[in-house]
Structure formats: C-alpha cells, structure tokens
Design a protein around this nucleic acid. Structure first.
Lengths: 166, 166
DNA sequence: TGCGATTTGTTTCTTATGAAACTAATATCG
DNA sequence: CGATATTAGTTTCATAAGAAACAAATCGCA
C-alpha cells in the first residue's frame, strides 16, 4: 500500500515542532522526577519558587508573566504553596488588589535543595556537547521565538505563553 | 533585598530545560492553532493521522510507540476519530486482540489539507535560520535524548516518552 | 465627586490527563 | 491439554488544565 497519496507526506520524525516537543517533554519529565517525589512539588509550584528565588518578592501576575504560565495555573499553584506554608503573602498597602508573595523559610529550604539538583542535571545533560552546538541552540531559540511572535501577530492571535514542563 | 541566599541561584531564563519547554510549547500552540479550529482536531488526533499518513495502517499500540504518546491518550483519540468517521478499524484475523487502523476518505481529506499547512508553517519558522544552526539543533536533540536515556537508566526509571504538543 | 472601565486574583464548569484496574485474546510452559 | 503469564486495548478514578464568569479594588475621566 502506498503510505500516502499526498505529494509531500509529513515525516513526523523530521518535523521540527514535533521533535522539539518530544525532546522538551523528555527533559522536563526527567528534571521533574528529580524533585517531585522527594519534595512533592508540582512543576508549576517549582517554577514559582524558582522565579521568587531568582528575582525576589513579586505578585501572582508578575510570576505568570515571568514563567509564561496561565494565571489560573499560577493561582492554584500558589494556593498549594500557601497551604504547605512554603509561601507567604501580604497585601500591598498601596494597591490592595495586589498580593505580594515571598518564600517562607520552609519554602526557601526546598528551593535551596532543588537548585543544585536541577543545575547538576542540566550540567550532566549538556556534558560533552560542543559549546558551539549549545550556542546554536540559543540562536535557534531566539529565532523561533521571534518567528512565532511574528506569525501570531499576523494571525491576529493572542496566544499567551501557555506551556507545560520543567 | 538579596535575590537568593543560595550560592548558585537558578536563572530560569538561562536554564536549558526551561527554555526548551517554553519554546516547544509556543511552537506547538502556533501549529495547533493552524488546524484545531478549522478541523476541530486535537493534538493527539492529528498525531495519529500523521503517522498513519506516513506509514500506513497500524494498530493503536504501534501508533503509541511511534508518537511517544501514552496508550490511554491514543485510545481516546482513536475513539474520537472513529466517532467522526475519520478512521476505520478492523480486527486482525491472525490475532483478534489487534485492531488495525486506517484513515477513511474523510480522514485522509483532513490529513491532506493539514500537511501543507504544517509544512509551510515549519518552513516559515525556519526561514532565514542558518542551516548550520538547524544542524546543530539536530545534534543537540540527539545528544539530549541519549543523555536523558542514560540518566533515566541510572535512576532505574521507566519514563515512557509521555509528552505534549504538536 | 462618581460611575463605568480596568486590573488582580479566585472560582466554576467542562474537558484532558495518566495510573491502575480491568476485559478479552493469545502465548508459554509444565 | 490446561493453568499461568503476557499482550492489546478500554474504563475507572482522581487530579490538572484552561476558558469564561466572577468579586473586589483601583483607575480615569466627565
């Protein structure tokens, strides 16, 4: 039987968006495995700790902007972190809609334990990869981000950076 | 305020697994946008059509293997495709547990319309990217897949290629 | 002022997800 | 042969997801 009547059948294995997706999710699953069991932390929860650890206090909306996560997802992850007392928050006196988030000592202890795990995993994954290839990936990522943005703009779409992983 | 008390704070924007994830999901969301509304097709449904279009008839298990999708996800996507009469299946007479899948004419019509959209989107996204950078990405992908596999093996984990996107 | 528009964050509702249990058919090995 | 293990695919169950509606606070401008 002829595999396809289409003139240019799509070879999934060579389709860049597909490869990117499979690769990304394999890597994410591995990294998540390193902390999810041990600390019972979900991916969005970890992301929140990561941005707070890096940039200090901020609100839920700012976290969503930084992490490219949906605000609902952020809201729920924050609820779990508050419940576990890994996060505390206080009302901004200048604008009482805003709730400023910060890690508690418990939260920071978790963060401080995961960061080295994550960095060493990354280091290990990239070990023996030529530096030039990593630099090329950086360029590809920058290029694709811009190309996607341009395409979206043309489609008149407002796709927020909804995503999944790590 | 000091951003982190950690000696090596994690800079998410430079953390490769994170960049990979955000990039992948942006690209996937864009590609999905090109067909999901128009054909009301989900990502797993599209993947199934894609492998059938490329490789011809196969069973659900084979589809799962090809696409790195979970078998439950495949099963449900097949159910929807059958419901929409985009797929037909028949019992393998040699092994009556096996159900061989093939596209119907309706299914192939959808496939034939989406393939050019997907390929032209990919082409556009990669336009003006130096070929060397794309080749470097191929190497990075190969390298990372192997590195993840090695890491998993060491952790004694059996992570199937569960994934998300495109 | 004051009232409609906007912003922040949560909740509701529907659907998607995957682990584990399950059904049915086949393979294996005593 | 026949009991047990394995395989293909589905269903159940609990959780996660996002769109849209929502509540509360603030902004903006007549």
């Amino acid at each position: 039987m002829v595999p396809s009547l289409n003139e240019t059948p799509l070879n999934l294995e060579r389709f860049m968006p597909y490869r990117l997706s499979v690769l990304s999710n394999r890597v994410s699953a591995l990294i998540a495995k390193l902390y999810s069991d041990q600390f019972s932390l979900t991916i969005p929860e970890w992301r929140i700790l990561a941005v707070l650890g890096r940039y200090g206090e901020m609100t839920a909306t700012e976290v969503a902007g930084r992490t490219a996560m949906d605000k609902v997802r952020v809201s729920r992850a924050i609820a779990r972190l508050l419940e576990a007392e890994r996060l505390a928050r206080r009302v901004d006196p200048h604008d009482r809609r805003r709730l400023t988030l910060e890690m508690t000592e418990t939260g920071r202890a978790v963060y401080d334990q995961i960061v080295p795990l994550a960095l060493s995993a990354e280091k290990r994954l990239l070990a023996s990869l030529p530096a030039a290839d990593l630099a090329a990936f950086e360029r590809l990522a920058t290029h694709l981000n811009a190309a996607v943005a341009a395409f979206e703009a043309e489609l008149g779409v407002v796709l927020d950076g909804a995503d999944e992983g790590v």
